[in-house]
Design a binder for these strands. Structure first.
Lengths: 207, 207
DNA sequence: ACTCTATTAGGACGATCGTCCAATTTAAGA
DNA sequence: TCTTAAATTGGACGATCGTCCTAATAGAGT
């Protein structure tokens, strides 16, 4: 009973530390210090560091799913929901400025480490991709919904990277404005540019 | 005499390894194995691992400057030069798919490590930013040249991140097309949207 | 009060990290 | 050819890493 709570604490604190310092650069001692438990206690709850990472990713997946559901409840119109996505850049501007995007930086790191959990981390991106794609489809852009989702995902990733590098929050606001303009153009004009349609290959087979 | 060559080899191989595996995840043993020298020889040329990183960044800065100069020679019109920038996504698609953008991933990692050389790494971004800004100014967009440069930089960063995550090269081509379209619209229309002008704060003071 | 399981503490372990050094080899100049 | 500095070697070092193990403690159910 008590154990489940400390397990939860471990995952939450590890989540934060992995985000702030990166996975590899976060040691067991760091997490143990944060949670204020002995290093040995740890291995009662998790057999390895990889297992903690897996639990952290599962937590993030759950939180992300809840967030997306909340956005769907809060916003009636698809364009409002998409704006909810765009505005996370502003809502989390302080963290992004210091640590970048939690999803992007994790995926990048795990890819370089060739870590076993990189596929699960990618799933975080997939959640946003699928959700955004559905919203664009509801906007009447069924043909290129996936392209639009990827496009928006890429732009927010790029903004997060540059904000962290240049430490400039004004850039966020400016780019968010442009993304909203881009979204507005889409909703007013009834499907202007239906370029070469189709969907990008979705390699969800895992590697 | 001979020593300068091995020093060069060390920097070149370290450059590649830092890109592929990340700075922290690359050990001395890894570099020594690649260069095929003894681990001790290393410290004749560099006093620490940080010093190797500094040398690697200097090498990248030099290579980047040369590349930008080459682009300026090859392309007469500014729009052609900007296209040279956009097309690095295609030229380096294989590496980007596996390891992401060399500049973005390095800056992100050094920021999380809070490494002393993060300011120098940021300078890599600044080179592109300044160069692109100058090209946009030549296009007659003096007012918002810096915003446009940052915008394009962000978009290619985002593309690189997602390509690495999703392992999909078709996404590169599609986004490159869109960036070129965006550029064409800019050159044909004579300054359509001159929004709130100015330049983002350039924090080049270093931290 | 007692038992038994769940939980925690703290240290030992081998491996690997970045760093450093003494000894040796190489190569260039006189 | 001899001298001397440049270059290279291979191993020792302390620290830290992730992992594991045993003993101590806590708490719920009888």
């Amino acid at each position: 009973m008590k154990g489940k709570m400390t397990r939860k604490h471990i995952v939450e604190l590890a989540d934060r530390l992995f985000y702030q310092r990166g996975y590899e650069h976060t040691s067991f001692a760091d997490i143990a210090d944060s949670v204020q438990i002995s290093k040995g206690n740890f291995y009662y709850h998790f057999k390895s560091k990889d297992e903690i990472l897996a639990a952290v990713i599962q937590l993030r997946l759950e939180n992300t799913r809840n967030m997306l559901l909340k956005w769907e409840d809060e916003g009636e119109r698809p364009e409002d929901r998409i704006k909810s996505f765009i505005y996370i850049l502003i809502a989390n501007h302080a963290d992004i400025k210091m640590y970048g995007c939690p999803v992007g930086t994790l995926c990048t790191e795990l890819a370089k480490l060739n870590h076993a959990s990189k596929a699960e981390a990618k799933e975080l991106f997939s959640l946003f991709r699928t959700w955004l794609s559905r919203q664009f489809a509801l906007l009447g852009r069924k043909e290129d919904a996936d392209e639009l989702a990827m496009h928006l995902l890429a732009r927010s990733q790029g903004v997060a990277t540059l904000v962290q590098a240049f430490q400039d929050e004004r850039f966020i606001r400016h780019e968010v404005e442009q993304m909203c303009d881009w979204l507005s153009c889409m909703t007013s004009a009834t499907q202007l540019t239906h370029e070469s349609g189709g969907t990008y290959e979705r390699d969800d087979s895992g590697t």
